[in-house]
Design a protein around this nucleic acid. Structure first.
Lengths: 199, 199, 199, 199
DNA sequence: AATGAATGAGCGTTCATTCAT
DNA sequence: AATGAATGAACGCTCATTCAT
């Protein structure tokens, strides 16, 4: 099979990445062997290693991918009418993508947090993506302050940290306990924030 | 040979568990070899295996221990005068214990979440501990509702989930980004909850 | 499609062989991957395998080639006026060809000796070439005996072995230590052989 | 099997080294798999890796060992009465040790030369050992010059190189062709050196 | 004739665990 | 009870070779 298009190469990379992500989401990074990923991808060992340098790169790619999808909603985040609306939208997104992607990105996210403890190559891109989201949330907070919906003396960056923190808070409970739902979570947040905001 | 020996056994188990926890917090569960734990404990392989059945049991024990310390503050949780006060107290506790224990329990917590994805023996005790905290938080919510500080129609269990979620939210940012502080986090939460509550 | 195509085939084989020889001389047989040879030849994997059955055949061909060039001087050998002259001529040849060939045949020779330990397909042609040279050296010895320059009771075949042995002796020191020079080596040999012989 | 003496450790290292050397002498460095060495040593993989860091270290150790035995005769070398006597003694030694060691050190030496092309960790100790022998040979040459048995204007270091070179010359023919014998080689050398010398 | 992506057997190595002492 | 040398299954990965195009 000679000379193959760049598009075909990208497709193969995607095929392998998704296979790896499915395996990781199922068994965790370390309990997943390359043989398992290789079988899941329906390829040979050599083929997989032709597209990724090794297991580490696959872990980094899967972690990056799981976090990437948050980037899709950055504009929406900055324009959210209220904290609860913002969170509801994000949680909805996070909950819904599993089918579209073929794996649960929140499981990979949780694995990625654990891996981050010792692996900067996982931690740094994740930290960067999260920092970007927080910046957009801070932007939203500033809107709310201008609208008079939030105390003007609050530090927008710090409020954004709390808002952002609701996301991992939801994910941890979703993965460990399983009894959380985006809309009920948002409703409770609305109760907590004094019911202010219309979104 | 009862009591004395039993106490000795417990001491040795503690010595090994703390050694393992230090290693895990430093390198993660899977990058920590039993040899490393054995060296850190200052014992022989055989000795360690005399007290724990294997690495998995050590991981489960370390995860359990990291989560256990939250049990100390259950009464305080239920009596907290406001969401922000509650969260401030918990985050303060969580931030402070690292020195006392010789390892950072929030690092182990993050590792435990990752491990929970595939290992019910880690997930279940953690989930149980978290559920217990949430129950106490729901109790606090009910107090606030009785005091008129919170909308009476809010579901206390759901509000508790949000409150509890602030904890992992803080921990994830602490571990991955590192720019969060208990008091500033609580202050931002206070701004978000409309400044209601004085505690 | 005879002649032209046959010439083209021979050219391609030569191009591949020289590429392989350069790689082998640089990195050794086993640390050279086929990919490296293929890249050095500027061809594709399939093309290289169209001309050589595999890596082993390439090793055998390179070893053969490194040894072949000694065949050029067989007539000179038989006519040498003295041991020292003979050796000087051979060492000079051996030292000089590296540039002409694009690789150092003495490096390949050393590699070939190592490979000979287990691979008769390398050993046999090399052994045959060396035996041929020794036969010509024995011829020279007989000349010297007839001329009265060497004891008549010496076994020419055995003396030839010693003379031939000076060659690998030089090469080993050249490759491992690097402080030997053909003319100084020949001069020392002249001192050792009692200064007999003027050539 | 707890606490074992240093002597026992040394024995095990020797057992493994000899097993590796036998395998290497039989099949070459690269065609010998660690599994083969492990089986030959009668141990498990883990045990072997407890004594040697890996295959490379085993190769280096085997090469070193094959060359070491020449160190035993350094004093004898310096005192040799004639070139032929010197060479005869060395070749005799080299030929005889195979049984004592359980492997043919000249096969390993040839492999080591090949490996030296690209591996300084093999080349350097071998080069050092050879340089040491040459220094002793130069000493012998100086004796012969003082005795009037050799031209006073010859460079002893250069003559030593030629003398030393007889060794690899013998070994190469022994391994590739197999028709050389220490005493006949020495006799031929005696003929070549003008029969001078009584040794 | 030429391509190069794909193959897959086999490699060197690790490490949780055992058990003779 | 304690030791630590020994075990061996399983891992991640390489690379000589093939064959559909």
């Amino acid at each position: 099979m000679p000379k193959v298009t760049e598009a075909h190469r990208a497709e193969r990379r995607e095929q392998i990445l998704l296979a790896a992500a499915r395996c990781f989401a199922r068994d965790g990074f370390h309990a997943t062997s390359m043989d398992t990923v290789i079988a899941e991808a329906g390829l040979s060992a050599g083929a997989v290693y032709g597209y990724y340098r090794g297991k580490d790169e696959l872990i980094e790619a899967a972690a990056g991918r799981a976090v990437e999808l948050l980037g899709d909603v950055l504009p929406v985040v900055a324009a959210a009418p209220s904290p609860a609306a913002l969170v509801e939208q994000l949680l909805g997104l996070v909950t819904e993508v599993a089918d579209r992607l073929g794996f649960d990105p929140t499981r990979i996210a949780v694995l990625a947090w654990g891996e981050s403890v010792r692996n900067p190559r996982v931690r740094e891109p994740v930290a960067r993506a999260y920092t970007a989201i927080r910046a957009h949330m801070a932007e939203a907070v500033r809107h709310w302050q201008r609208d008079g919906r939030m105390a003007a003396d609050a530090d927008p960056e710090e409020v954004a940290k709390v808002l952002f923190g609701l996301l991992p808070g939801f994910i941890v409970q979703r993965q460990l306990i399983g009894d959380v739902h985006p809309d009920r979570y948002a409703a409770a947040l609305r109760a907590l924030t004094g019911g202010a905001g219309t979104g």
